[in-house]
Design a protein around this nucleic acid. Structure first.
Lengths: 347, 347
DNA sequence: TTGTATGCGTTATCAA
DNA sequence: TTGATAACGCATACAA
């Protein structure tokens, strides 16, 4: 056996494959095989090599591995923000499940800005993400093309659409809101309003509004005259929007909020205005974050299985990356949590 | 000029430096320079090269760049969990600031488990993180040695210790708690209790407990007889622990909680037990998460500048990585938010 | 200012 | 089962 081809051991630095090979008296190819497909190596040599690996404290160089194997075992996620508990929770589960499959998570946030999201997607792709988790479908077609030419698999979460080319895992924002709204109308409400996120760049927000309108139509309301305020997802904006919407004529007896954060704001505004909830006005949210059941009175909302979504999204994405398949979209079930902020309209 | 050295353009795939070079009729070295140090290239050629970059939609290959330059422009963070709003908030700011400096965030979570944290640190290092953000100082010495031999700079956040070898950014958990506790004792409380996280593996929790004991000693209380319950950071555990601690004799008139999540649980338990807060018992938290001011009654707690900490941590870490310096530890200020859960003891 | 040539540490193909 | 060796795509020292 000749190890002449291997350069001499350097003074002291991070050990490389060659160092291990030299120590175990085998070729670098054999060391590489020991690490990546151990069963292709004879028991004897393998133990010898592994001993050298331990002894040197060898760990493969990430860049070199990525360059040679064309994959990084890294998955990227671009989310609006971690500050919203629903994403924090989902991403936490996502990361845990990725870890179980030997993948690491690369994250970036878009702050709900379309242009920034596109930039982040490009960045994570450039950073070598093997696959991408995206939130919702709405984005420039250019982005989808980019992903396709780069052949980076992407999965959409927090939204569901069986027809779309991009696989997704989520729930029907529209149906969930229809279910909730029907219950509200059954209580007898005839004057409603909605506080929503911007519906132009946020398909989830749009679908939720559509759901309310659909149910309102069923209930025979004049959908076009329904007050809708579009604002940003924050408690303060919820406060402000609630004040505006309650100034409408006729005054709403029930206010749908695009998410729980807005609803908490609405609740606070109602208190400040001296309005009883649900005596004077009913309020509903969406997401069922921790705050929803802790609020006073507790918030009626749509429960979304964020953790399950994160966990399963990880599994799907790993499949997409490793098996190079496009999975079927998965629809998760939401359910209505009836709590104290919903009651019959004032008589 | 001869471009003979460059291989012919491949059928169609992801463009490389060579493709750009061929198109712009320059060498790969020039293209590389255009991208990394534009000022070393003549205006004329640069515009030509940049046009080719745009035209081809070229983006550098991550693995190759990492291999050649020995850096990934990636920073890793190992946090207990994203589900705690304080980390979600801090990490969000951390990531935003990293982005401004051209760095991307790699995250992993330890679920407050020491062994898992060590594994995650090794994983992120193996994934080529240029630097690491860690939470608190407590971890096996082996980990610090590992980081040193690998020469991966690490910064500790959510804790502050000017003496430690590892630079840190945070605040004195002990002093913050002393400040809060002094106010409590000034109100006249003589019987207190504490609900804490596990103090063996969590240095922040330990310091907070120390703070309470210090102030209690100052106030002339018998520190050894003070009831302390160690549990896990969750609302449910807070509920359970509060029940236990209120069964103590003499019954505490004030209960310090290791964080706001536990305090929210304590608050809920008090309600369920028919106790008035602060009439029968005062409750305090730590962190000042959103819930704290939204709770009913609003929670007296220690405000921690989580966002600022995340943002500045990013800046420090980038400095450590790029300038190869060890920055001075930074101490941030906390302040007490006096809200309704704190009152004088019942007479 | 630009080009040439080499090395970075793996993986993978092909031989032996 | 193992070894030699050619990519992989970029950065950079050195030369022109």
């Amino acid at each position: 056996m000749s190890r002449e081809s291997l350069p001499p051991t350097p003074a002291s630095s991070v050990p490389t494959l060659a160092d291990v090979a030299r120590m175990a008296n085998v070729s670098t190819a054999t060391v590489s095989r020991c690490l990546n497909s151990p069963d292709q190596v004879a028991e004897r040599t393998r133990t010898r090599v592994m001993a050298a690996v331990k002894g040197l404290g060898y760990a493969p160089n990430f860049g070199a591995r990525a360059l040679a194997s064309k994959q990084t075992n890294t998955i990227g996620a671009v989310i609006p923000t971690m500050e919203n508990a629903i994403f924090a929770r989902g991403i936490q589960a996502f990361q845990e499940e990725l870890g179980r499959h030997g993948y690491t998570l690369l994250v970036a946030s878009s702050s709900y800005q379309e242009a920034l999201e596109e930039e982040q997607i490009r960045t994570l792709t450039a950073r070598g993400a093997d696959g991408l988790l995206l939130i919702g479908f709405h984005r420039n077609a250019r982005v989808y093309e980019f992903l396709k030419t780069r052949s980076v698999p992407a999965l959409v979460a927090w939204a569901y659409d069986a027809e779309n080319n991009t696989p997704s895992i989520g729930f029907s924002n529209k149906h969930a809101m229809v279910d909730l709204a029907r219950i509200v109308f059954e209580k007898g409400h005839r004057h409603i309003g909605m506080i929503s996120a911007d519906t132009t760049a946020n398909d989830r927000a749009r679908d939720r509004l559509t759901g309310v309108k659909l149910a309102a139509g069923e209930a025979g309301l004049d959908v076009d005259r329904m007050p809708v305020i579009e604002t940003t997802y924050s408690i303060e904006c919820g406060v402000e929007a609630f004040r505006q919407i309650m100034a409408w004529t006729p005054r709403p007896t029930a206010v749908f909020c695009g998410n729980d954060v807005l609803a908490i704001g609405a609740l606070r505004a109602a208190k400040e205005m001296g309005l009883s909830v649900p005596g004077d006005v009913s309020i509903t949210g969406f997401d069922d974050i921790e705050l929803a059941s802790l609020a006073e009175p507790a918030l009626t909302t749509v429960h979304v299985p964020h953790r399950e979504m994160g966990r399963r999204a990880a599994g799907m994405l790993v499949d997409m990356v490793t098996k190079k398949i496009t999975p079927k979209s998965v629809e998760l079930q939401t359910d209505i949590r009836l709590r104290r902020t919903l009651g019959p309209p004032p008589t």
